[in-house]
């Protein structure tokens, strides 16, 4: 149970970073931390105590394997997270080129 709570604390650190920081790069870092916490929580729910890796080997029976379904979901989620991070970084670089700053309180002008 304490493992679940530590994972939730990690989520909350990322949430604080997203809500409170003003720098665009810091906000990207907060989104990445939240994503790590969610991926880890999926795997924690599917873990079986003293389980085995879900890969067959020729000399062992098939009992006591951990759950392969959350692993398959998280495997696609990791690559999607990388693509989304790259997209946000591209938008942040364009914003810097336009306004000359990463501070979100100074980005107010809509035109020019």
């Amino acid at each position: 149970m304490s493992v679940y709570f530590l994972c939730l604390v990690l989520f909350c650190i990322g949430l604080y970073c997203i809500l409170r920081k003003r720098n665009l790069i810091k906000i990207i870092i907060g989104i990445a931390i939240v994503e790590y916490a969610v991926n880890l929580f999926f795997i924690l729910v599917g873990y079986r105590m003293n389980g085995r890796v879900p890969i067959y080997s020729p000399d062992q029976t098939i009992r006591d394997m951990v759950d392969p379904l959350p692993q398959a979901l998280v495997l696609t989620s990791i690559v999607i997270g990388l693509a989304v991070t790259a997209l946000i970084a591209a938008i942040a670089m364009r914003v810097y080129e336009k306004y000359g700053t990463f501070d979100i309180t100074k980005i107010k002008k809509l035109k020019g």
Partner: peptide, 21 residues
């Protein structure tokens, strides 16, 4: 798909030249 897509993203991010302030 993954290899060429990620390589293209990194190429595009590296090619952008930001002028100094």
């Amino acid at each position: 798909k993954v290899a060429s897509g990620l390589f293209m993203i990194v190429i595009l991010l590296m090619l952008l030249k930001i002028p100094k302030k």
